[in-house]
Computed example of a mutant assay.
Amino acid sequence: MVKPLGVQLYTVRNQMKVDRDDVLRRIAGIGYGAVEAYDPTDDPKGFRRTADDLGLTVPSTHAYALLSQEPDAVLDAVATIGADLVIIPGGIAEEDFTTRDGIARAADLLNGLAEHTDRYGMRLGYHNHWWEIEPKIDGSHALEVLAESLAPRVFLEVDTYWAAVGGADVPALLRRLGDRVLALHVKDGPGVKDRPHTAVGDGVMPVPGYLAASPGALRIVELDNCDTDIYEALDRSHAYLSRLERA
């Protein structure tokens, strides 16, 4: 991995509500070098101070708040935590990804938000779930049609698990999207919508092929929910991905 392996902090959202700094310490203690925030507006100065103290980089953040709050206020917080990549992780109606007109509306929204991130020297991105993959338009996944409509500076964070659940040949999709993909969400599990995730390497996902298809992208572990101890799952995920890197 050319960049530090990271964790999307939504994975530990419940623990973050109790003791954010302890969560970050435990993630750093496992060996992760980066974290991806999910709410940059929540005490950005304190968050950044703790991340710096622990040697954690913050290359990216999710920013649902851009869809409902004043963009400058949100992006000031993003600047404080130090992220350069600002990602919309949903919030667009699922049905918009079933037609070209709907996808055009989604692209217009994202391109408009990118004008704000441009002023801050940041890049805007979009994160998929299964509903941008399942619909096909003229043979292409809706996510691919969206990519064609986005301004070149707008990137994608591809969630490899949900792309697979949505029916994609994920390595082929990643190769087609190419340099548009700056980050990957790496997760594992049974490969269906309504079952808990597992540590990366313990499920059915062919993770090595996903990583090989997008070698320059950030690798960010995310487990939406998990039946086992979440820190044990993060530890096992880190060990597995580190072994892949050494192989």
Rank of each mutant, 00 (worst) to 15 (best):
Y161L: 15
P152D: 11
D169K: 11
L173K: 06
L184D: 00
V158G: 10
G166Y: 11
G178S: 11
L177W: 03
E157S: 05
V170R: 10
A163E: 13
F155G: 01
P171N: 03
L184M: 01
A168V: 06
L173W: 08
R180S: 00
L156M: 12
R176F: 00
L184I: 02
P171R: 09
A163L: 13
R175T: 05
R153Q: 13
V170P: 03
L177F: 02
E157D: 09
L177H: 02
A183R: 03
E157N: 05
D169M: 09
A168P: 03
R153M: 11
L174C: 02
G178L: 06
L182I: 07
R175W: 09
V181D: 00
A183S: 12
G178C: 08
L182R: 05
A163V: 14
P152V: 05
P152K: 13
G167W: 14
A164E: 14
E157K: 06
L156E: 10
L150F: 11
A164W: 13
F155M: 10
R180E: 00
R180Q: 01
A172C: 12
R153K: 15
P171E: 05
R153D: 11
L177R: 01
F155S: 03
A168F: 12
A151F: 05
V154N: 04
A151P: 07
A183K: 01
A172R: 13
W162A: 14
G166L: 09
P152M: 15
L156K: 08
L177D: 11
R180L: 02
D179S: 04
A168I: 07
R153A: 07
L182V: 06
G167V: 15
R153P: 01
D169I: 08
D169L: 13
L182F: 06
G178Y: 07
G167N: 00
P152G: 04
F155T: 13
L150M: 13
D179I: 02
V158C: 07
R180F: 08
G166F: 14
T160M: 12
R153S: 15
G167L: 09
L184F: 06
D169T: 01
L150R: 08
R176L: 08
F155K: 14
R153F: 09
R180W: 01
L184C: 01
L174G: 03
L182Y: 01
V165D: 14
D159Q: 06
F155N: 00
V154D: 04
A172Q: 11
L150C: 11
E157T: 12
V181M: 02
A183V: 01
W162Y: 05
L174T: 05
L156Y: 04
L150Q: 09
V165W: 13
D179P: 05
W162E: 10
R176Y: 08
D179A: 10
V154C: 08
G167Q: 07
D169W: 11
V158R: 00
A168C: 10
G166V: 15
W162C: 05
V165H: 09
D159F: 07
L156S: 04
G167Y: 07
L150H: 12
V170D: 07
R175E: 14
Y161H: 06
D169V: 08
P152E: 03
L174S: 04
R175K: 15
L174I: 02
A183W: 00
A164D: 07
T160L: 15
R153T: 13
A151Y: 07
A168N: 11
A172V: 12
G178V: 08
D159E: 10
L182N: 05
